[in-house]
Nucleic acid binder design. Structure first.
Lengths: 210, 210
DNA sequence: TTACAGTGTCACACGGTCGTAACAATTCTC
DNA sequence: GAGAATTGTTACGACCGTGTGACACTGTAA
């Protein structure tokens, strides 16, 4: 198919069952999924992937025979990132893979963030304020990390769910409130809870301004 | 094409030149671009858009005839967000548009507006005047945002209801008066309430002139 | 197994916000 | 100037959004 030649490492499976095994050997960067799989439909396979927290984030490109419009629409609804209609050329396939990877793998930042005496270090996975260590749960940590790296900006609960919990996850929006509450509680001992601000009718914002 | 029926506002152009004019009337949320344009190829048009800072962020979906694989590959390289191969159904088109908008909307209509020391930032959802933060209710915020982005122009109460409250909402016109009052109250501490002006017999206007 | 931390969801309470009516003030018309 | 039309201002009830505590569930480690 020319994928190896293009510099990708490829694992191949002939059925959904084989694929299951293959991806558990190591989370792939991207899944190329034929809509017509023997034994099990590709849509079920994709749906299952989206429910599994380990693979929820893995982008999916589906391959469809021409005319299967129903499947394509449903595929996009499920959260497939792109599709290709057969027949297609290796060159086009490579281009699409690059495009999808470009938008789904934003460079992860390991840099230390500090605002107003509050300090978060992704490397040591530690939060401290005025030389006091602050204990946060995993979700609160990711939430704070995201907010601190995107300050002075409102986010809706939906956006926070996408960015902190991950896309293709079904969680109530109000759950965000509860985690904001837990985050604030953790930050309250040093008064840094004021940095996490409510924007009524919209969502939340991280800001050092009053 | 069914786009209007799906709730989108559509502007149409038959050539790249017409399109140029159309988008300068107002930055669109998304551009649907046919690859085969009379006079100028779609790819050149797209490339030019990507270089223009006003339109760089606007997502592009391109429409290609089947078999024009060369173009599709180049289109993706340029940064088209998606493409559709003819023939396609209205339903699929709508699904794709929704998918693209879902990915890209966080960066739409968020430019900072500033007039005469008064400053409104949609991104951080914050209003400030002379370095003082001003607290406004959600409706007052939207009202001010609309007025500031359409300055020097009278709006009837009905127009304000349509644009700020939304169409198909039954609210008394006099309600606008009350919210204008609340807005003015918020702006009065810094004297910016003078920017919100009454036009007797018609409605209200935002203007820096006396 | 038990203990426990982490998570998601719900129910309730509180406060903010909204729309409306009523009255006061202003401006226009005659 | 009188009366009418228009707008400003205030108060109030209803409702919506958010904060908060409690609880059930899951997975993990002891």
């Amino acid at each position: 198919m020319g994928l190896n030649r293009a510099g990708f490492e490829v694992r191949h499976a002939d059925s959904a069952e084989d694929a299951e095994g293959a991806i558990r050997l190591g989370v792939p960067d991207l899944i190329l999924l034929d809509w017509m799989l023997p034994g099990q439909s590709g849509i079920d396979f994709a749906r299952r992937l989206r429910r599994d927290q380990h693979f929820r984030e893995v982008p999916i490109i589906m391959l469809t025979a021409r005319g299967e419009e129903e499947d394509r629409v449903r595929g996009l609804d499920i959260g497939a990132d792109d599709y290709l209609t057969k027949p297609f050329s290796p060159r086009e396939l490579v281009a699409r893979i690059r495009a999808v990877l470009r938008r789904t793998t934003p460079t992860a930042g390991d840099e230390l963030v500090a605002v107003d005496g509050l300090q978060l270090d992704p490397v040591s996975h530690r939060v401290s304020a005025d030389d006091t260590t602050i204990n946060l749960g995993p979700t609160e940590f990711r939430l704070l990390h995201f907010l601190m790296t995107h300050p002075e900006r409102v986010f809706t609960r939906g956006q926070l769910l996408d960015n902190v919990w991950g896309t293709n996850v079904y969680v109530e929006e109000r759950t965000v409130d509860v985690h904001v509450r837990r985050l604030r509680k953790g930050l309250s001992t040093t008064g840094h809870d004021r940095l996490v601000q409510t924007v009524r009718g919209t969502g939340y914002r991280f800001s050092s301004k009053a």
